[in-house]
Amino acid sequence: MATSPFSVTRFRVIFSICWLIIFVDHVLLLRWFGLSWSMAIVDGAINDALLIFACLLVIMMLHYYLPQKEKYFHLLTWCLLITVIVILITKVILKNIYASNEDYIIFFNRSLWVRSSLDFLLLGCVILISVIWYNWQEQSEQEARKQDAEKLSKEAELFKLRQQLQPHFLFNSLNSINALIGSRPQEARKMVQQLSDFLRGTIKKEEHQWVTLKEELQYLQLYLDIEKVRFGHRLATSIEYDESLDELKLPALLLQPVMENAIKFGLYDTIDEIEIILKAVREENNLVITVTNPFDPETSAPKGTGFGLQSVQRRLYLLFARNDLVSTEAKENIFTTTIKIPQA
């Protein structure tokens, strides 16, 4: 959200000084037209106070609703409308105060047109300045986000590198292969193949690339097969989804860290056999993926989102500018991670 120009002290000072000058001019002008000091001041004060109030209102409104470029004529309408309201209220108040002074009423009616146009111009200026301010704010915010995105993509690359290497996973897999070579060479060969395919997948795919659910799940299966060899009967996984979802798209390599998190969490938090379940469904225009794993609520400190999930969340934020796409829930001894991927 852009900040209001009033959050800047200098702006507040300038705003106040300008209004002071306008007010003094207003009074002096009325005085020049022959009004008494008191009348000039009351007239000026009421008219300008209402106008200041209108300006503040407009600045606030623009804070929450900044029209698109092609809708700028809306602003003109606002400006006109607010001017009319300000003038009407001024008129009612002043005519009430000076009801018995006919000269003043005549003067007021004659000055109506000049007053309105001046108010309109002033209000127009304020609107123009705030539109420029808010646009500039938005732009610098976008700039910051872009820079952030670039920085994050660098981090993501680093993370990817680490993913490729995932030392713990890699060395343990090699250790399993080492064990298989002696006893079951055929299986050792198969695992070498799986590990190579998995690593190739991590290298080949770009962070920003989109893949179909089918491809992503095939890739995920490689990872799961390796983990299953490592952990044997302790780890069971199931993937439940309808083939009609095959062609839905998601960012490449998004699911593997989620699954990895679930496996780590599940396997190291209990000593029992565990089952990790991945479900994919379509909800409205979203691909919704839930991953569940068991955990021990008694000994696990509430971890929130682990590092793996954080990176998933950030990636989705960069793509959709939304922070609500990753959510987690711990219920009894089941931990559920839900990921939504909006479909174009």
Partner: peptide
């Protein structure tokens, strides 16, 4: 060791030492 294959490779290596007897293999700290 919690990984079965990691255990089996150690068992295999230990077999070369006739004086070492594996009393038990365990899959967790408990």
């Amino acid at each position: 060791d919690d990984e079965p294959l990691a255990r089996s490779v150690v068992i295999e290596y230990i077999q070369n030492f006739p004086d070492l007897v594996v009393s038990q293999v365990c899959s967790n700290g408990y």
